[in-house]
Simulated scan of single mutants.
Amino acid sequence: MSRYFVVTGTDTGIGKTVFSAALAGALDGYYWKPVQSGLDEETDSETVRRLSGLSAERIFPEAWRLQTPVSPHLSAEIDGVAIDPDALRLPETDGPLVVEGAGGLLVPLTRQGTYIDVFARWGQPVILCARTGLGTINHTLLSVEALRQRRIPIVGIAFIGEERSDTQTIIAEMSGVPVLGRLPVLDVLTPESLRRAFTDHFDLSLLQEGVAA
């Protein structure tokens, strides 16, 4: 099994932080959110800490914590700081590390570079989170194409939302990317309900079967 799993999404607000919490907990691993935009509400690291069951020591601190909940490049400018994408280096761990990006692949970190540029430099396997609602076919296939153009290995797609069998099937058929499972909408979101849903809908052995070309 890979030591690193980079979790990204087809869009913002689709549930990849909740998925990251479930994955990091199931792997008994570590979690890192390199750049956090927006500090007024619970941060993604705090959400993962609350839902994953991991100890605080398993949650790496963000490299940049930015006040305004907008794209990182703009949030950094508002805060009067400069993000240096080249300074983002994967932490060394003694177990699996789940790294969560912000929004989609082409979210800018600076006015010259995006998250996918950092992912390409890392060269680590990516899990693409995709919602199951209207528009996801286009967004997901475009994201897969962008990853392949940069030769970034793809572990698979994790769907989030209500069951949409045809949507999920056509994305798998047209992309050729394995479907890892689907995380349903949980009426009550607790560490226990999330752990149970992940166990019921995902097979960790799929993470050991290589990545899609």
Rank of each mutant, 00 (worst) to 15 (best):
Q112E: 13
D86I: 01
L27N: 03
V177D: 01
G9W: 08
K16Q: 00
V18T: 08
W122M: 00
E145V: 06
L204Q: 01
G13P: 10
T167M: 13
R3L: 11
T8L: 06
G176F: 07
I78Q: 14
D166K: 11
F159M: 02
G80N: 02
Q36D: 07
G95T: 08
P72Y: 05
Q208C: 15
S165Q: 15
A130P: 09
D94Q: 12
A213C: 12
Y115N: 08
P69T: 06
V126W: 11
L147D: 09
R58H: 14
L54Q: 02
V98R: 04
D166V: 15
F5D: 01
D203C: 14
L183S: 04
G53C: 10
R164D: 15
L54V: 11
V107N: 07
E77Q: 14
L88T: 03
W32Y: 04
I83G: 00
E162N: 12
F198Q: 01
R150I: 07
I171D: 00
Y4Q: 11
L106D: 08
G176Y: 05
L141V: 06
G25T: 09
E46T: 11
C129E: 03
D44L: 09
G38F: 13
F60K: 04
S165E: 15
L134P: 07
E62D: 07
T136F: 03
G133C: 11
V179E: 11
A24Y: 07
F119A: 00
S205A: 15
A213G: 14
A146Y: 10
G103C: 12
G9K: 04
D28T: 13
T110N: 08
S71A: 15
L189D: 00
G25H: 11
L54M: 10
R3H: 11
E57G: 13
F5H: 10
A213F: 13
G101S: 04
T43G: 06
L51C: 03
E173L: 13
R182K: 06
Q67G: 10
A76D: 02
L206R: 13
L66C: 02
M174K: 12
T8I: 07
G113Q: 15
P61F: 08
R121W: 01
